[in-house]
Design a protein around this nucleic acid. Structure first.
Lengths: 250, 250
DNA sequence: CGAGGCCTTGATGCACCTCAACCGACGTGG
DNA sequence: CCACGTCGGTTGAGGTGCATCAAGGCCTCG
């Protein structure tokens, strides 16, 4: 507990050795394409880390926007809470991804960000990011690419929600997860889901029972093996066929 | 015809008097919040205009990305074409809005942009925009807000597609259009749809017959009057109730 | 050991899709 | 000028994919 406090402290010196320069995610995260000196500058403004434990909030809808957050470790969902209590999951987010982009427009967060497992993020004060990106054109450009990629991703989800059947949606979802795990050095064919059936359903525009049935169906066809949260892809080719011809979401 | 050619010419001098400084959209478009000198600089790089006639393409999926486009007049849809021929409309776009943001990430356009009426756009070479935004922080910041707003908008559509019923979707859609017309000085209650029932359906994740039926139902309840493409909102309060409690899309 | 969270599976209903017929507006060519 | 085809829209009838409701199993944790 005192260790925890120490690690969370704003005044500790841990950021010196945990800045972008030494982060294993620098090929995935904001530093992509920067030189050493530029990474050092970025590392200086992103030195503050925050730990969020499972089911804790990184930020909530309505709270004031100050910073973006890069995920150092862990797994998050972002979701919009409707007045009637139901929630719509707008995304699942893994290491190296940037959270909070939606809040730039109104300077308020428009959704909740919840950790689905114990996680750690780097806080990136947005004003400072804009400031240094004036002198680091490649950082600015890469940041624009990241925002644009988020837009493309959302269009993919719109396509999915607008025109796919339940099984296609789930296949697309699994393949998307698989691809993102590969990029992070994990297995393409074996992984654990961090989210519940209900959260998957919310993201895919389905009810949890439908998600469960679709999983079972894919298992019956020997395309995947699913044991609770563990997924094994047995036949990725047929899984891709299930997905249909639709554009792959990012 | 020769007039048309003249107006389209890259060598005419019409841009001198039609730069951002004199554009009636400068409170809606990129120049928001800039001072006179900054607007002049922006106007210089955005001086090239292009006319697109009805059902013409501004750009196509797969084409190389060079520029963003600000809509000076007219109306566009953006859509993803699936391999099987069907298309998913990802957005409808009005004057002052920026097209092409999705292409920054891969330097290729990921969707088609089609004019739904005769339109004119300002071409904004993206490399130059990034360049001048280094010296105009408020431009950079506003651009970030615009991209962020697009993300928020997409989340709204995801919410709509993921959890609303047909009638709620249509009500949300009409109210969204209404709001955007108001911002441009048009009537909140009377406007013409530029798109077909099929395009609305594609955007809302519905079939055209369902859209048509939902229109008829709203008309039967005296909430709207619809005559072909013309929409009149008779009871905006009840229309908002139809929309449900969901977060309004931007 | 009991309670609660998460998941699965079955039975039933309904919102939307599909197919089909028809209408009006518009443009084209005989 | 009218006949005709096309396109967009409306409406009806019937089918279906998913939601809803309900029951029960497994696992974790107090």
């Amino acid at each position: 507990m005192s260790l925890q406090t120490l690690l969370n402290s704003h005044h500790d010196i841990s950021h010196i050795k945990s800045s972008c320069a030494t982060c294993s995610l620098r090929e995935l995260c904001l530093p992509v394409g920067l030189n050493e000196e530029e990474i050092r500058v970025l590392g200086d403004i992103a030195s503050h880390k925050r730990k969020i434990s499972r089911s804790g909030y990184l930020y909530r809808a309505g709270s004031k926007f100050q910073s973006l957050f890069a995920i150092r470790s862990g797994f998050f969902k972002t979701c919009i809470l409707e007045q009637d209590g139901r929630q719509q999951v707008t995304g699942f987010h893994m290491t190296g991804e940037l959270l909070g982009l939606d809040a730039i427009s109104t300077e308020m967060h428009t959704c909740d960000a919840v950790a689905l497992e114990d996680s750690e993020v780097c806080e990136i004060p947005f004003a400072k990011l804009e400031e240094i990106s004036r002198t680091i054109p490649s950082l600015m450009h890469h940041f624009h690419k990241i925002m644009s990629r988020e837009i493309v991703r959302d269009h993919g989800v719109m396509l999915l929600l607008g025109s796919m059947k339940a099984e296609e949606r789930l296949a697309t979802f699994l393949l998307n997860l698989s691809r993102r795990f590969v990029m992070r050095g994990y297995s393409e064919y074996n992984f654990n889901l961090r989210m519940t059936r209900e959260e998957i359903g919310s993201y895919l525009g389905l009810k949890l029972e439908t998600v469960s049935r679709a999983f079972s169906k894919l298992q019956d066809e020997n395309i995947i093996t699913i044991d609770n949260k563990h997924v094994q892809i047995n036949d990725i080719v047929r899984l891709k066929i299930k997905m249909g011809n639709s554009t792959c979401i990012t």
